[in-house]
């Protein structure tokens, strides 16, 4: 099964990377950009056919390792 885990800075946590990207987009003429938050995506291939189990598994992976829950939120999606 293919599972996607998105990890991103929590709302309210300073995101200097996102800020810098937003500023750069503004300089490139994308004046409509109000804010950018930068995160990561993990494309994970999990053995088995149980989507629910794969999702629960990926959730644990995010909590244990992929995200630092002090500053990052995450969401999990079973893609196929």
């Amino acid at each position: 099964m293919k599972v996607e885990v998105r990890v991103y800075p929590k709302e309210g946590v300073l995101d200097p990377q996102g800020k810098a990207i937003a500023a750069a987009l503004g300089r490139l003429g994308h004046q409509a950009v109000r804010d950018v938050r930068a995160g990561k995506v993990f494309f994970i291939d999990v053995a088995g056919a149980d989507a629910k189990a794969a999702e629960a598994d990926a959730r644990r992976m995010a909590e244990e390792l992929l995200a630092n829950t002090v500053i990052e939120g995450f969401d999990v999606k079973v893609v196929s």
């Binding site: 946590v13 300073l14 995101d15 200097p16 990377q17 810098a20 630092n68 002090v70 500053i71």
Partner: peptide, 11 residues
């Protein structure tokens, strides 16, 4: 120890 590190504000 509590807390976390982020990238320096000056990037």
């Amino acid at each position: 120890l509590p807390g976390a590190m982020q990238i320096n504000r000056g990037l």
